[in-house]
């Protein structure tokens, strides 16, 4: 089996294991996995890229229900959620890049995985600094959003290129 599908299968398995104590959450998680699989089937049949993002989003939503019974502020729960998210990100990277470009560069994997500890750090700052409730965290997230908006508003310069042999 190809690597991307192994990641997705492991992800689904982890999703189902976590909420086993609660029937309602198990059902909701199962529902999300079912929807995700349905859209995955449509994606395989129709081969529309939008469906690729739909089934992955359904799978991401599964995390919310899967870990719904646990304390969301616990570093362990966040760690498990991020571990699951890493698996899904890896699935997305492999399933997207291999068919188009034939390879997945190590840089792509590194930057994808790097987003997880950085996000963990962001939440850590948000959770534990006690000046007000999450003052530094909010400040940090606010700065991030400002940087993000600045980067989005940059206009890229069009470049001409004709280069056939």
């Amino acid at each position: 089996m190809k690597r991307e599908w192994l990641f997705l299968l492991s992800y689904y398995a982890l999703l189902l294991i976590a909420p086993l104590g609660d029937v309602r959450l198990t059902f909701l998680t199962g529902l999300m996995i079912g929807l995700s699989l349905l859209f995955l089937y449509f994606y395989k049949v129709i081969k529309d890229e939008i469906l690729f993002y739909v089934y992955n989003f359904m799978a991401i939503l599964g995390i919310i229900f899967s870990l719904g019974d646990y304390n969301p502020y616990s570093p362990l729960v966040i760690g498990i959620a991020y571990l699951m998210l890493t698996l899904l990100f890896l699935h997305m990277v492999y399933a997207r890049f291999i068919p188009i470009f034939g390879i997945v560069r190590r840089d792509t994997i590194v930057y994808t995985i790097l987003s997880i500890p950085l996000a963990y750090l962001s939440i850590y700052l948000f959770l534990i600094y006690p000046i007000g409730y999450g003052f530094f965290g909010l400040f940090f997230v606010g700065i991030l959003i400002l940087i993000f908006l600045y980067l989005l508003m940059r206009s890229s310069k069009p470049k001409k290129g004709g280069n056939a042999a």
């Binding site: 969301p72 966040i78 990100f89 994808t112 987003s115 996000a119 940087i147 993000f148 980067l151």
Partner: peptide, 21 residues
Amino acid sequence: SPLAIFISIPILWLIIFSEIL
């Protein structure tokens, strides 16, 4: 659900990386 907001943060980081790289 704070968890939904927490799992959105890595996505934000990915977008920031793509703008910086």
